[in-house]
Computed example of a mutant assay.
Amino acid sequence: MYLVQKIIRNRNTILVMAVVAGMLFGNLAEPLEPYTIWVLALVMLVSTTGISFKSLVPFSNTLKIFGAGILFNYVVFSAMAILLAWLLFPVGPYFMGFVVIAFSPPGIAVIPFSQILHGNSNYTILATLGSYIAAVLILPWVFDLFPTESSLQRTDILIFLTKIIVVPLILSRLLLIKPIKPYVEKSRGRITDWGFAFIIFVAVGLNRHVFYEFSDVLFKSILLLFALTFVLGYIYDKLNRKFHWVDAKTEVSQNLLLTIKSSGFTATTSLALFGKEAAIPSAVMAIMVLVYLIYLSLK
């Protein structure tokens, strides 16, 4: 029984189960779609309690780390993602799905995995925080630059991002009050894992026909996301070893920031702003990121 509980509580197992459940019981996903934004807000609320504002001091150093997070997340990764997506999906919802991925913040998983892989944890936390703050400023302007049939206004996107990033980040400070904090810390990982599992289940379930048919869209998405995780991470690792830009611990953190995007954030944003077809890349990314993190752990 203990072994079964350990397997069920494992983050990787939970996400695999979510993908499989989406494939098998995808008919249940459609009525659950409106709740994805609230589940993501809850996940953000709980998971950001691990970010301490005390770590912002000294602020000059924090700004440098914020800049590094933005460089890896919104410049290097985004440039590669947009270029490859434009070559494979010139227009339409699939392209917008990759635009969301390109300019989304890093996955919350980079923080625990930075510890697991012996990276620079404080660096990862600060760079992640900077990337989430930057997302609120960057995304509303980015969506204006790309063609879409959506009638969304910049203010609509700003309100959406405020709901899932700004408000949870502010309210998370209330969960750090002493009587509440121990309970939050105890359940934070489980809430985050099952929250993302719910979002991935909905994203996969709404688009399970694409997985069953193994269509051209699915093949191109797998190819593109493999390049943005495994290939991009491998290239950066080799370049850093050759030029010695940063120490080994910081390199681990930067590699995660460069390659790991928040599948829950991208799936929810794609569904809410551009429809279920735009969420296909995010559903594929959830699987690809999971495989990549397992690969890094074994490596």
Rank of each mutant, 00 (worst) to 15 (best):
Y132A: 05
I116E: 08
D156S: 14
I222M: 11
W141Y: 13
G189A: 12
T162W: 06
L206Q: 10
H209L: 09
H118F: 09
G205S: 12
T124P: 02
L126M: 10
L161G: 02
K186C: 11
V166Y: 03
E213H: 08
L161A: 04
L129A: 11
L161P: 01
F201G: 01
I177L: 11
A197N: 06
S215F: 09
L137Y: 00
I180M: 14
I200F: 07
L158T: 15
P179F: 13
I164L: 10
F211D: 10
S221N: 04
R208H: 09
R173L: 13
L117N: 03
R173V: 10
S221A: 12
V167H: 02
L225R: 00
L126W: 00
Q115G: 11
N122H: 07
F214G: 01
L169S: 13
I164D: 10
S187W: 14
S131G: 09
I116S: 04
E149Q: 14
L224I: 12
I200A: 08
S121E: 11
H209Y: 05
W194S: 08
N207H: 09
L139N: 09
D156W: 10
A203T: 07
V142H: 08
S172F: 08
G130I: 02
V166I: 14
V142M: 12
W194G: 01
W141T: 10
L206R: 10
P147G: 07
P179N: 13
L224Q: 03
R190H: 15
G119Q: 05
S121L: 14
L224A: 07
L145C: 09
P182W: 15
